[in-house]
């Protein structure tokens, strides 16, 4: 529970952070809310020698309407999503999911950009952004690029972000059509054992903790689009998944949960 030694720099801007990332290379980690990174450092599972604090970049903290979608600054905290009037009106699912992350202290430190960059398949918000068909805006030394959320996650705690890139903004489409999020866990503060996010009446279904990344339940989505019943579509929810096994659940049980929770989410979204 005591981290290895590290140096710490407060970034003055996103560009400054990117410049520092370029200087330090793979010895550096960006520090946003720190609620995933710091525990990993305390267990010495992560031993970066340089921490670049981007959590104080207030100009990356905003939620605003922008041409049919909602633009959210990467350093916007979960608690801000939870209490946002813009999201309440135009993207209630994201607001709802944000309120289920961890506990109040986590939600007052954790950031949307941080949780996406961390790419934990067990986290709630990445799967919500994926179900919504959101876009991640990343900035690097050569400027900005937009990455579809469906292209973003590549493996356990891995994404397409380059070593010298940081997320600056997340865009999600505005929409209030049938949505639901089912989070199954044992304690309120825990990660989901399995979670299911449904957006747009079932056009977007994504699964939490059912593989090495947040994933879309493509077979279920396609069945539903093809006119299948909710029960029949939900029965396909775990198809082509490779769920992890841990103390809470083996793969078979996780697959069962994915099917049950998908059915419940679809019923609630279309109820």
């Amino acid at each position: 529970m005591i981290p290895a030694a590290f140096d710490y720099t407060v970034a003055e801007s996103a560009d400054h952070a990117i410049q520092l990332l370029g200087e330090y290379g793979d010895e550096a980690k960006l520090l946003a809310g720190g609620h995933s990174l710091i525990p990993m450092m305390k267990y010495r599972l992560a031993t970066p020698t340089q921490l670049i604090d981007v959590g104080r970049l207030d100009d990356l903290s905003y939620i605003r309407r922008d041409n049919g979608h909602i633009a959210i600054g990467a350093m916007t905290k979960h608690a801000q999503l939870e209490t946002s009037d813009v999201l309440a009106a135009d993207c209630p699912m994201l607001q709802h999911v944000a309120a289920l992350v961890g506990d109040p202290s986590v939600r007052h430190r954790g950031t949307l950009g941080g949780t996406l960059a961390h790419s934990d398949p067990a986290s709630d918000l990445p799967a919500a952004v994926l179900a919504l068909g959101g876009t991640i805006v990343a900035k690097g030394p050569n400027g900005q690029r937009e990455i579809a959320s469906s292209e973003f996650f590549t493996g356990y705690f891995e994404s397409v972000l380059a070593e010298d890139e940081m997320i600056v903004e997340v865009k999600v489409p505005a929409g209030t059509a049938g949505w639901n999020y089912q989070k199954f866990n044992r304690r309120a503060q825990d990660w989901a054992i399995v979670g299911v996010a449904v957006a747009d009446g079932g056009a977007g279904i994504s699964l939490v903790n059912m593989g090495s990344t947040p994933i879309r339940a493509t077979a279920a989505e396609e069945a539903l689009a093809g006119g299948a019943s909710i029960a029949d579509a939900a029965a396909l929810a775990a198809q082509d998944t490779d769920p992890p096994e841990d103390l809470n659940a083996d793969g078979e049980y996780r697959a069962h949960l994915a099917r049950v929770l998908t059915q419940r989410a679809l019923e609630a979204a279309n109820g």
Binding site: P39, Y43, R186, R187, A188, Q189, D190, L247
Partner: peptide, 15 residues
């Protein structure tokens, strides 16, 4: 295999 409070589940008031 579960020596931390992440895996050793002490319940909170919410439970």
């Amino acid at each position: 295999t579960n020596p931390s409070f992440m895996d050793y589940l002490v319940p909170s008031a919410a439970e």
